[in-house]
Design a protein around this nucleic acid. Sequence first.
DNA 1: TCCATTATTGAATATGATTATCAATATCAT
DNA 2: ATGATATTGATAATCATATTCAATAATGGA
Lengths: 144, 144
Amino acid sequence: MDNIEQIFGNFLREKGLRHTEQRDIILNAFLEAEGHLSAEDLYIIANGKSPGIGYATVYRTLKLLCKVGIAREVYFDNGKVRYEHKYKHRHHDHLVCIRCGKVIEIFDSKIEEAQDRLAKKNGFIPIKHQLNIFGVCKECRKKK
Amino acid sequence: MDNIEQIFGNFLREKGLRHTEQRDIILNAFLEAEGHLSAEDLYIIANGKSPGIGYATVYRTLKLLCKVGIAREVYFDNGKVRYEHKYKHRHHDHLVCIRCGKVIEIFDSKIEEAQDRLAKKNGFIPIKHQLNIFGVCKECRKKK
DNA sequence: TCCATTATTGAATATGATTATCAATATCAT
DNA sequence: ATGATATTGATAATCATATTCAATAATGGA
């Protein structure tokens, strides 16, 4: 129950879905790549490993991974969805460099608590949130 | 210097752009509508006031409004950009109801400070951020 | 005021990301 | 193995947004 491939396999079986080679390849490509990939990024990796894999399959599999809780969608500033690891990956926020695009994950329990408090104060049941801080990273700050 | 129409007019003159009826109509539609509109929302309003106004003009004008600082882009969860008032409108975050789509603006200086602190701790110069909290609002909680 | 210059418009077309269609193929329970 | 049916990949369809371009309108100057 702690192996992601197994979790995915169980999920497929339970739902009456099929365990295909493509799904495995895409899952592994996703797991190996740390970071915040777009569907295109994943397509390039997966298609590199197994030419023939198409965009459609990548998109479809990405949806499944979100459904099982292995991946999560993230919306940054450019109207393009990115996917990050969710399984055994605590919730976190993002620092995004507007120069080089680097993404750093951050977590601060004070912010988390304050958010819950604010939501409740306004009568909301908080379900999830996304905090992205945009700025210039240390390296880019040095250059010019 | 405190009238938005004037600010927009000055901006156009300075940039050598022209003050057209369409731009006025779209600006006014935007100003009258409180809330967080999509380009489509604005198109419907503007085109209602002056049939003939097309999507292209709405998109182009919205870009100008962002450039002058009258409007600001907001990215929620659905891959669609929304625009909110920026002029004399302090920075704030959002509570978004996942049932009815209602958006409430919130502000909490503790969260703001904590964010700046976090960014700096990681070597970032913070420039802007977006915090969206998704949940179920009071009204939707009651229904069913 | 009329003119000439040139920014702007709207319609149509293009783009980029994502989704749906569908015939051929692969998986899985029997 | 076999049959039922989920899945695949290619392609076409969508959706939001951007671009092109000929016709039109706004501006500054005569």
